[in-house]
């Protein structure tokens, strides 16, 4: 108990004084996750919209697979990315293993299905509403996707934030492909695991507080957004 209290006090000290390590690790976490989420959204949102307005033979199967991919175990994603990027792997020549880029790649793979699946659900609802009008107006498929993505932007933001929440707290994949290297690939989650292992509780708790604050902020944002969605009917 004393450990925890002492830890909390020094953690607050680290945060208030903007401890160099703490800031560096937090910023890297944000950099990796924000980059990954931006890329995942750039792929997932249009894909979700496309899936809503396109009829093709294996559509139902594609949607089922996409939903299943939402639950992809990060450790397995990490393992596969590790094998692909390792020196003997097909992408070994790029020397990406144990770099932030490798971590971004792994997170993109984890987050894209989440964003695509959630945005598909939201867009499908809107498409059901708009269908007759957009067909009647002789819109092209691209115009339909554009209208749905724009008018559904609040639910799509919620989907994207959900992906962010998932990625920022993720450790399984980035530990494997990033290696938790000091000043290079260490992020909030991997640093906490390390500091706990070393017994350095103040830093671990400080990092934990930052991580929890970020997670709560994201969840709050999602909550507020989905509330305004319901009240304003979107």
């Amino acid at each position: 108990m004393n450990d925890l209290l002492a830890g909390l006090i020094s953690a607050f000290h680290l945060i208030v004084t903007l401890d160099h390590d703490l800031v560096e690790i937090s910023l890297r976490s944000l950099q990796v996750t924000v980059t990954a989420v931006v890329i995942a959204a750039a792929i997932g949102l249009p894909f979700g919209a496309w899936l809503s307005v396109t009829r093709f033979r294996f559509r139902r199967i594609a949607i089922a697979v996409l939903n299943a991919l939402m639950g992809l175990p990060p450790v397995v994603v990490g393992l596969v990315v590790y094998i692909l990027l390792s020196r003997s792997g097909p992408f070994g020549v790029f020397n990406l293993l144990f770099t932030p880029t490798a971590m971004i790649i792994a997170q993109v793979i984890i987050v894209t299905p989440i964003i695509a699946s959630l945005s598909h659900q939201a867009i499908r609802e809107l498409w059901y509403l708009y269908h007759d009008l957009l067909i009647s107006l002789n819109t092209s498929k691209w115009q339909r996707m554009k209208a749905l993505l724009w008018d559904g932007r609040r639910s799509l933001l919620t989907a994207t934030l959900t992906g962010f929440g998932r990625a920022i707290g993720e450790i399984g994949a980035i530990m494997i492909v990033g290696g938790n290297i000091d000043h290079l690939t260490r992020v909030l989650t991997t640093a906490i695991a390390l500091e706990v292992g070393k017994g350095d509780f103040p830093l671990a708790i400080g990092l934990g507080i930052v991580l929890i604050t970020l997670a709560i902020a994201i969840n709050l944002a999602i909550h507020i957004l989905s509330r305004t969605e319901r009240e304003g009917r979107w």
């Binding site: 809107l126 708009y130 007759d132 009008l133 009647s136 002789n138 209208a147 008018d151 559904g152 979107w234």
Partner: peptide
């Protein structure tokens, strides 16, 4: 075909209101 599509309009029984 294109002329025909673009030069007629339809008002549905329940108006479709876009989120705009």
């Amino acid at each position: 075909q294109k002329d025909v599509r673009l030069r007629q309009s339809f008002v549905f029984q329940t108006p479709v209101v876009m989120r705009r």
